[in-house]
Design a protein around this nucleic acid. Structure first.
Lengths: 172, 172
DNA sequence: GTCTATACCCGGATAGAC
DNA sequence: GTCTATCCGGGTATAGAC
């Protein structure tokens, strides 16, 4: 059976918090054990007394982000509202959003349930249909990551593109 | 005015081809100048006689991929067909697809027109509406990258999720 | 709990000889 | 057009002293 992430000590949580501030303010290259340690005024090897390895740190950051997204979803009842919440969270925390969505998800190291809670809010917002929920999530993630990466043509009206997609899922 | 990518010499094209084979068969970690050179039986510094830097190599790979996608789109007239072509190309070339879609696009180093040609096919497939085209592209990219990264729940019926999204964009 | 020292890996890129 | 030698940077992680 898969064991999940161990509880973090108070000191470990400080490290995670510092790592997050670095990530959000300076981007993913800043998320190195040396840089995090330096920001705390210690040396990199000391971190390993508190966290098993870097993956544990990333899992903690990702679990936190899932939690926060679920909270942001709480007030949203329809697709337009949840899309706005999704886009708003990602735009406010672009580097964190990329960290939590890029590449495989190390589910065994996440806090149990965080992924499902975020997903359940999307399913509810589209009226309970899982297939439509997955498609709508893909739309939202696609819009978000293409927007964050500057992939749309310069000058594209992204509000209008979001609205077009939301209209499609609302009526389809 | 922005100058675009210089023509590649025949030897440079050989290097790009070798790089592509490495990328597709072994993944992005294999796309290093040392590994590419080794695969060609030469040393890494020699590559710089043929290509300015690694970005030039990546731009060539990306331009080729855009070209190929445009070609795959050529036979597709409606949204379902173009979505199937998109998904099929990405699934057949996952590492290349990630390379061409992840992060910012270095437009000045691409072959001129390759991005627009691929985009135009999507616009045509949704009937000419740019906003719907962007939303549909976001849906397709989102589905694709989440699928490639194993982000959907294990056992999720992705054919059904694709169909749900296509239906939404067809009717909405 | 922190330190120093270190081991090990990797990467892109340049200078100058041949 | 290729080579050797080298420079620069980076990273995760461990051992063992304090």
């Amino acid at each position: 059976m898969a064991t999940s992430a161990p509880e973090l000590s108070a000191r470990a949580r400080e490290i995670v918090q510092t790592a997050r501030e670095l990530l959000e303010s300076e981007g993913p290259e800043a998320l190195s054990m040396r840089r995090i340690a330096a920001a705390l005024g210690i040396k990199a090897p000391s971190l390993y007394k508190h966290l098993a390895d870097k993956q544990a740190l990333e899992a903690a950051l990702t679990s936190d982000a899932f939690d926060e997204i679920s909270r942001v979803f709480a007030d949203a009842n329809d697709l337009a509202a949840i899309a706005a919440a999704y886009r708003g969270y990602a735009t406010a925390h672009p580097h964190l959003y990329r960290l939590m969505t890029a590449g495989p998800l190390d589910r065994e190291r996440l806090e149990p349930g965080v992924e499902d809670r975020a997903g359940a809010a999307i399913v509810a917002a589209v009226g309970g249909d899982e297939q439509r929920a997955r498609a709508a999530w893909a739309f939202a993630h696609g819009m978000t990551i293409l927007e964050l990466d500057g992939r749309f043509p310069p000058g594209a009206d992204l509000d209008a593109a979001w609205a077009a997609g939301i209209a499609a899922f609302d009526s389809g």
